[in-house]
Simulated scan of single mutants.
Amino acid sequence: MLATALCGVLITGCGGGGGDDDAKAKPAAEPKPLADGALRPLLLSQADLGDGYVQEKASSGEFDDVAVQGCASLEKLEQNGDESMFASKAEISFTYNTASTLGEELHSDRPSVLSSKLRELFGAYTSCPTYSMTAGTTPIEVKVAKSATPKIGDEQFAYTSTMELPSGAQVLKTMAVRKGNVAVMLVGAPALVDRHIETAVDKLPAGS
């Protein structure tokens, strides 16, 4: 999907006169990442979304040659690659009434890793209010603004990007919510992302 975008935990403690047992206490182990196969059943389905949605075929890689210019943090992210940021991943995408799109990615890793890397990812994408990109030989001007998020899950991130394409302006919203060791990310028409983010988060396991 064109312009798909696609995080630290600070533990403090204070005590008055704790004994040796307190000093030896270890923090609880973080939940381990879920496997790819465990993520796939948690993806949104046509039944979850309702009428008018059609699942798209797997990406053909037509936008693999996207390059960013004019935003140092995004260029660095692009060089490092974000496909291997997390331990596991599952994804799906839909069209709505043949005109709008909605893509979903699920990522799993230890909660502290998800948190720090999501902050890094969304921090990079919102660090430059404007930048340029090319898809093949097509130049695209992009404007980015942070967006409000519902108070669901453990952490929430969102931004809206407006891309000036040869066919006209296209607005996409990217929103991610972390719930324990799983993060859901929706990308698509802003109204569709806002409409389905809570459903997507509700599908995540309560103990994740």
Results as ranks from 00 to 15, higher is better:
Ala189Thr: 15
Gly8Leu: 12
Ala25Trp: 14
Asp22Tyr: 07
Asn181His: 07
Val177Leu: 06
Ala189Ile: 01
Thr101Gln: 09
Arg119Glu: 13
Tyr159Met: 13
Tyr131Thr: 08
Phe86Asp: 12
Glu104Ser: 03
Gly207Met: 11
Thr98Lys: 15
Ile92Phe: 02
Asp21Leu: 13
Met1Phe: 10
Ala200Thr: 02
Arg110Ala: 11
Gly18Pro: 00
Thr138Asp: 09
Glu30Lys: 01
Tyr125Met: 13
Gly103Asn: 10
Pro190Ser: 08
Gly13Tyr: 13
Val142Trp: 10
Pro33Gly: 12
Lys26Ile: 13
Val66Arg: 08
Tyr125Val: 13
Ala200Gln: 10
Glu83Gln: 12
Asp48Glu: 02
Leu102Lys: 07
Leu192His: 05
Thr130Phe: 02
Ala189His: 15
Thr101Leu: 08
Pro139Asn: 04
Lys173Glu: 15
Ala191Lys: 14
Tyr131Gln: 09
Gly123Cys: 06
Thr134Leu: 03
Glu104Trp: 08
Gln46Asp: 02
Val171Asp: 02
Thr126Gln: 08
Met1Glu: 07
Leu44Ser: 04
Lys32Ile: 12
Ile152Glu: 08
Met163Val: 04
Asp202Ile: 02
Val182Cys: 06
Thr95Gln: 10
Leu44Glu: 03
Tyr125Ala: 10
Gly50Met: 05
Thr162Phe: 05
Gly15Trp: 03
Ser161Leu: 15
Arg195Thr: 12
Gly81Asp: 05
Glu83Val: 12
Ala29Ser: 09
Ala29Glu: 13
Asp22Ile: 05
Thr160Cys: 03
Phe122Arg: 09
Asp109Arg: 01
Asn80Arg: 13
Val201Cys: 01
Ala145Asn: 13
Arg110Trp: 06
Glu105Trp: 03
Gln55Ala: 10
Arg40Ala: 15
Ser112Lys: 07
Gly70Phe: 05
Thr12Ser: 15
Ala189Ser: 15
Ser147Asp: 14
Asp202Asn: 15
Pro150Phe: 01
Thr149Asp: 03
Asn181Lys: 01
Thr12Lys: 11
Leu6Pro: 06
Val171Tyr: 02
Cys128Glu: 07
Ser88Pro: 12
Met85Val: 04
Gln69Pro: 00
Asp154Leu: 07
Phe157Cys: 01
Val66Thr: 15
Leu77Arg: 08
Leu42Cys: 04
Tyr96Ser: 11
